[in-house]
């Protein structure tokens, strides 16, 4: 497993204002800045754009020899990136999550995953983060698809801090990566440096009664809110940030299954096929326990709302997490 290249400062030594300035923006912006830094250090790093907007100036003007725009052509984006990777380059291919996972799914499967090539598919607008753009731009099925692709590593940073860590930790990954980002700024989960370990769930809060396993910016921050409320109810909830969906940290899931009353999964993705399904698959085979899956139900959203509102409407909210966790710890009757 790749180890992070960021040196962790001693906890509590980072002045909050600087931290806020560096990371208090959209994960996407931190990602882009980090990519430019990586590309300056390594000429194999290429930015492959599909007319996303922003990369052409931020990256293209800075490092034109390492920038390629294939236009609005997502299937081609995957094939071109695979071809580039086969020659020894490290292409970072950019598009919107839904366009990568569904429109260009076959190229992603056959050309990228099928060849086990180091293409980094970096997607934005994941989950319901494209809120007001409508259901064509919502991507709540992408994890279900990409986690079934052999060779694929799937990472969902919880905030801008983790985004930078994840990008650096996967810089030398020999195979393909699907890095799932949102669109707008989301709450900061991490306020000081820590050691990001790819494939290892990060324990955000210790707890013995029940386990909350979350992935993605709002789900993780909602799980932390729920942890506080549950503590007030006398329930000790373990909170795991499952930033790596594949390979899944089976050990952390099995410990949760064995050491606590049950697991609540939280994701900005369909309850079918995503984190909840992945967790259920693990415990079903090795340590059966109750798993309550909180995520997006089997429907489209055809009205305008922002990301958090849509999530709450979908049933992804601190209140739902609290109720689910409490019911696992103290079953009715």
């Amino acid at each position: 497993m790749t180890t992070p290249t960021i040196e962790a400062a001693p906890p509590g030594t980072v002045p909050e204002p600087d931290w806020q300035e560096r990371y208090g923006v959209a994960s996407r912006d931190v990602y882009r800045r980090t990519l430019v830094e990586l590309a300056r250090e390594d000429p194999r790093v290429f930015c492959v754009d599909s007319d996303m907007g922003g990369l052409e100036t931020l990256f293209g003007e800075e490092l034109p020899a390492q920038y390629v725009n294939v236009g609005i052509a997502e299937a081609n984006l995957m094939g071109v990136s695979a071809g580039m990777a086969a020659t020894g380059l490290l292409p970072y291919a950019h598009t919107i999550s839904g366009f990568a996972a569904t429109r260009a799914c076959e190229q992603l499967k056959v050309d990228v995953a099928g060849n086990d090539l180091p293409v980094r598919v970096v997607v934005t607008h994941a989950g319901l983060s494209a809120g007001h753009y409508g259901p064509t731009h919502h991507a709540v099925d992408d994890l279900a698809i990409v986690r079934t692709l052999p060779n694929m590593t799937v990472v969902v940073p919880a905030d801008a801090v983790e985004t930078e860590y994840a990008v650096r930790a996967t810089a030398d990954l020999p195979g393909p990566l699907f890095l799932r980002l949102g669109r707008a700024a989301t709450p900061l989960v991490h306020h000081e440096p820590y050691e990001f370990r790819l494939g290892e769930a990060r324990l955000l809060r210790a707890g013995d009664d029940v386990t909350l396993v979350a992935t993605g910016p709002y789900p993780v921050s909602m799980a932390l809110e729920a942890h506080e409320a549950l503590a007030g109810m006398g329930i000790s909830a373990r909170v795991l940030n499952m930033h790596t969906i594949k390979p899944l940290d089976r050990d952390a899931v099995l410990r949760a299954a064995r050491e606590t009353a049950g697991i609540v999964t939280v994701e900005d993705h369909l309850v079918a096929g995503g984190l909840g399904a992945a967790v259920a698959e693990v415990v079903t085979e090795e340590a059966p326990c109750r798993v309550h899956r909180i995520g997006v139900p089997d429907r489209f959203f055809d009205h305008v709302a922002d990301e958090r509102e849509l999530l709450v409407e979908a049933g992804v909210s601190p209140e739902r997490i609290i109720r689910a966790a409490a019911s696992l710890v103290r079953p009715a009757g």
């Binding site: 094939g79 695979a82 071809g83």
Partner: peptide, 15 residues
């Protein structure tokens, strides 16, 4: 699929 793959190769070789 093939022409995208070959295009990526050609582009990379040139760059």
């Amino acid at each position: 699929h093939g022409l995208s793959l070959a295009s990526g190769v050609a582009l990379a070789l040139r760059r």
